[in-house]
Design a binder for these strands. Structure first.
Lengths: 204, 204
DNA sequence: GCCTGCCCGTGACAGGTGTCATGGCAGCCC
DNA sequence: GGGCTGCCATGACACCTGTCACGGGCAGGC
């Protein structure tokens, strides 16, 4: 059982990816066997390389790290996933765990803890950033309904209600109602704020 | 002249910082002599450690990497700075060069090129991401006036015109005028969009 | 069956927003 | 000085927004 742990790295920023590889290469019991820059390449690369643990950034082109974790869970049982992200948004944590991720680490944790997190995940343990575990509880579940999320996602890019209504194929009045509900639920006063807050909380 | 180049690392994400340190440690001619997580600690740490090249992330608490580069230029002549950032926004490049940075590298450049960039900067050369150099020219200069930028920065956080007017100590009507001008100059139709676009272009 | 919750739509209303015209003030350059 | 530009402010106008009240439809749970 003293063989090395095979790790796959997924991050869209080549520099960060390479740096993380260098960091993990310092550990004699870890081996980086694959590196990808897109979420939709994770499953293929993991299968080909025989990776045992996948380190996934959330922000990636193709599909994001959370969706990639779900894909790995569905198609490669036995392969563990560890989500590493810039933003410690509580909603991300919840969604990552729902997607079957075994671990969730924020990018401002000390570098030395990363290797340890990989080992724990490989051992079947669950690794969760402690600062987020508590926040996640007080934040509670997503109060937004499906339509409200859809409208908010479009509203994130800006534009008038009419423009949003066109993209969602609803009437302008309905869009205003959904936005009004979202504004109420986020405790804000404009739809721009509501969209920003909702995104920060991982509600979209 | 075959001595090692002393490098300071500044990035708010500890994991990335450690990973970059590991990456640079692979190069025998480079030596990481200091690591900081805040922009306002750069000058002190560089002075103490005798760093010759400072690797600065832009997004940092305290002061950002661009302001830190300006501070290094003013207080530590002879010390070169290399700005490394996630977003390849043309405005960032221009501002970084104005702040006296000797190099500008985006985080999705290949990991191997980082060490080479550090060497070139230390040798007195200027290193600029080629994909940005052209974009920077077509984008042109910042068309926004000082007041417009100020109002937009506040508008970025959302809120009504009255709230913005209060924070900027102007009348609501004037704020509307500035916002209207900014909307025109950004080619958008709402102030939320204008603020977003302006920030993406590094105009704020 | 009834009730609840979510969805979609309409209409109306107060207030916010974006645009424009106008004026005054300061600084700068020819 | 005259012209120009940027800044601040005011007022007016049409339009957009956020809110509320009201319907109707559809699913799930008691």
């Amino acid at each position: 059982m003293s063989e090395t742990v095979k790790v796959l790295l997924a991050d869209d920023q080549a520099l960060v990816r390479g740096a993380l590889a260098a960091l993990l290469a310092l550990e004699p019991d870890l081996e980086v066997v694959a590196e990808v820059g897109r979420g939709d390449e994770v499953v293929d690369a993991a299968r080909r390389s025989g990776a045992q643990v996948c380190l996934l950034d959330i922000e990636m082109p193709g599909i994001d790290g959370i969706a990639a974790a779900a894909a790995v869970r569905d198609e490669l049982p036995g392969v563990r996933t560890l989500v590493v992200t810039t933003f410690g948004r509580p909603g991300y944590l919840r969604r990552a765990l729902e997607a079957g991720a075994s671990g969730f680490v924020v990018k401002d944790t000390p570098a030395r803890q990363l290797a340890e997190a990989v080992r724990r995940v490989h051992a079947g343990l669950r690794v969760v950033d402690p600062s987020l575990a508590t926040e996640s509880l007080v934040d509670g579940a997503n109060p937004l309904t499906e339509r409200e999320r859809e409208v908010l996602r479009v509203a994130l890019r800006g534009g008038t209600v009419a423009a949003i209504a066109g993209q969602v194929h609803l009437s302008a009045g309905t869009v205003r109602n959904h936005l009004s509900a979202a504004i109420g639920k986020t405790g804000t006063s404009t739809r721009a704020e509501a969209a920003r807050v909702a995104q920060e909380r991982g509600w979209l």
